[in-house]
Write a protein that binds this DNA or RNA. Structure first.
Lengths: 113, 113
DNA sequence: CAGTATCCTTCAAGATACTG
DNA sequence: CAGTATCTTGAAGGATACTG
């Protein structure tokens, strides 16, 4: 985490959001989870550039921040399901907006890029 | 920048937005610039936790990404004004949403925090 | 005033290999 | 299947001092 939430809130609320959601692939994971529950492996296949260690880390941080819920099924082979909490679901408008903005940005990038 | 834009777009548009805006204090700077043009020193006073080097770096990256415009007045003492480009202005709804979300998050954080 | 120039620390992210 | 365990590296961010 670049800036801890406690410190971010001293500065500005938007910084809090960045602190919670700014990690690599975090918002992408939220976007996929908005479609519904996913297993660990499914998420890994949808974010192929992240390896298992990175993926685990992001998901644990999101869980810690109350965005994601993790449900372990005690069975062999193991099964773990990830879903969104209420706080996670509340991100839907934000994710939609960022998705639009990002799409527009790559479609017609500023001349300086 | 954690993930280069070029790589982010391979994965997901939301990751592009994170890549452009995810740096420390970047979105806060945009938020202030939405209020109007600022001089370098003014921005520094509004984000007191960032030192001049960090501030310069963020502003230059935002300029490079076409979010911020930098206008130098050739005079002594020097004067530099920062403002938003069209792309920067287009972030207004996003910033507002993140500001709301961040505020709500610190007001009633999830029990896991 | 608006930065540079250095130096430094930390840590996120990835590569790779292994396990209950 | 869903992770750990190690190791490495790049770069972000900060502290401090200096300058046109």
């Amino acid at each position: 985490m670049r800036v801890p939430v406690e410190r971010a809130m001293q500065v500005c609320p938007v910084e809090v959001a960045v602190s919670v959601l700014g990690g690599a692939w975090k918002l992408t994971l939220v976007k996929y989870l908005l479609e519904g529950t996913h297993r660990f492996g499914e998420l890994g296949r949808r974010v192929p550039t992240a390896n298992t260690k990175t993926l685990t880390r992001q998901l644990r941080e999101l869980e810690q921040d109350g965005i994601v819920a993790r449900k372990v099924f005690q069975q062999v082979p193991p099964k773990v399901e990830y879903s969104l909490t209420e706080w996670g679901l509340s991100l839907a408008p934000l994710v939609a907006l960022m998705n639009e903005w990002g799409t527009a940005f790559v479609d017609s990038p500023p001349s300086s890029r």
